[in-house]
Design a protein around this nucleic acid. Structure first.
Lengths: 142, 142
DNA sequence: TTTATTTTATTGATATATCAATTATATTTG
DNA sequence: CAAATATAATTGATATATCAATAAAATAAA
């Protein structure tokens, strides 16, 4: 086999895994008790509180089954309230609680710092480039 | 929040998740009963059969605990044999069985096809670029 | 309107990720 | 050498990923 590092998919995987670990470690170190994935789902609901779980899944590149379980944890932790929608009883009304809003606010600066540090010496041009290439790869296999 | 798609980490995550699903689907469709992760570990051992589980973990960007479990499955499936090393009894000798070698061979063309299709309209220049940017991001947060 | 189909979400099973604690062995140090 | 330390791997607990099967409700079709 070609050298692992020469294979672009390993580079991609390595960077995203490293970023996730880095981000999670900073959050945990700050004493915030939430996972990156839980935050992502919470943030998605905050932005659009009429969104369906199916659409949360699509938006976060996750599976609907994972979303069900993550939401369950967010409800347990008291960050989210979940109630059947009267208009469509297959779906749920998802609303952030006060604690949910608080944790989102608390997270914001860390998210910012994480991104800034990760992209320290990368130009806007390069980011645009990265986007372009990655989206073509994604399109090729979708 | 900025649009999800504008955030480079989502692009990265999306592309690698899409690729994994695409690759796994093609493998399964071909009737090959192995996961991409199991294959990756098997392939790593094939390349260096004196490698430690710790080093397999590093090389595949995985956790040693995951490696233990993946190896357990590979042994169960009959693709790998595992024996204590006499020189260092904390470690194991890991050797591909005949079936292990067979499945590696069977996989090879699909791996090739998957990569080719994913990188269809991407130039060597762009891949080099991608490597460069991603490795700088990884370095920034390591 | 009854039946068929589609959509939304849940659940179970299995694989993997991560962290912490533990075990066994090897190496270093006093 | 004996004790302390370091290393390799395993195990348990919890979170997430994926697939398949199922349930419940909504919508479309007969």
């Amino acid at each position: 086999m070609e050298k692992l590092n020469d294979i672009i998919f390993y580079s991609i995987e390595k960077s995203i895994k490293t970023y996730r670990q880095f981000a999670q470690k900073n959050i945990s170190k700050a004493g915030i008790e939430i996972t990156i994935d839980q935050w992502l789902v919470l943030k998605t609901i905050e932005e659009d509180n009429s969104i369906s779980q199916k659409d949360i899944a699509t938006k976060t590149f996750k599976d609907v089954a994972s979303i069900t379980r993550i939401i369950e944890l967010l409800v347990q932790k008291g960050y989210l309230s979940r109630n059947l929608k009267s208009q469509d009883r297959r779906r749920f009304d998802l609303t952030l609680t006060k604690e949910g809003n608080t944790i989102i606010d608390k997270m914001q600066p860390y998210i910012q710092i994480n991104r800034t540090q990760a992209l320290k010496n990368i130009t806007d041009e390069e980011i645009k480039n990265l986007h372009s290439i990655l989206s073509r790869i994604t399109a090729n296999i979708s």
